[in-house]
Amino acid sequence: MRNFAAVLLFSLVTIGFFTWFSNFGIPQVDPAPPPKEEKLDLGAMTMEQFTALGERVYKGKGTCTLCHSALGGRAPLLQEAGAISKERLADERYKGEAEDMAGYLYESMVKPSAFVVEGFGKAGSSDTVSPMPDVSGGSVGLSDAEMKSVVAYLQKLGGYEITVEIPKDAVPETEEEATSRAPFKTAEAAIAEFACGACHKVAGEEGEVGPDLRKIGRLRDRSYLRRSILDPNAEISKGFEKDQMPADYGEQMYAKELEMIVEYLAALK
């Protein structure tokens, strides 16, 4: 027993030392809280504000400066990006479709490999593949408006006329939902509230714009239905048009509600 107590004490003292060191032996850095997902109000923006937004995106959310900085040397510097874009567009190695400076800058964000500056390609690709991710997706996830604002910022940085336009209609004017809205109790209530029936035939409503949902459970499985709500343009049923259904139901609905609606639709047979 005495041995046991001694060993126990020894182990606890050891753990205590590690704990002490982690708490007091090193400085406690409080990591920044997760970035907020910003909603843009583009309607009332001047070009200056739009460019300033671009700068914020460039230095913040876009994480561009991680690589595009003098310090790292991992990616080309962008101060002169505007000037060089003409040469780039004329270069025979250029694989993109852009025709002007703004188009080139925008394209380089979504298709970084369209032109890879010498020496900055992925190792082993002899400068054909860029190590830069498509910033419209992945963990950066910039919206169209945000990328255009970065283009505006880059044009200003080089001292050029800003040719990119502020997208007016990119963000649908939805009423800001109060964040503490109580979730709807039933699928019917949710469907009524989200006005699905305005376009679809569902729950007694007779919308004409979208597909008939009255027997949708026979045709589609749950994963398809879920995707159709989150990303309506992923696949368009025959005879219907793209871009008709709002793409932000994923943000508006609680996950519970989404599941309820999917469940409800899947059961329609």
Partner: peptide, 8 residues
């Protein structure tokens, strides 16, 4: 220790 300078 080394605040990185901006490029411009």
């Amino acid at each position: 220790i080394h605040p990185a300078p901006p490029t411009t």
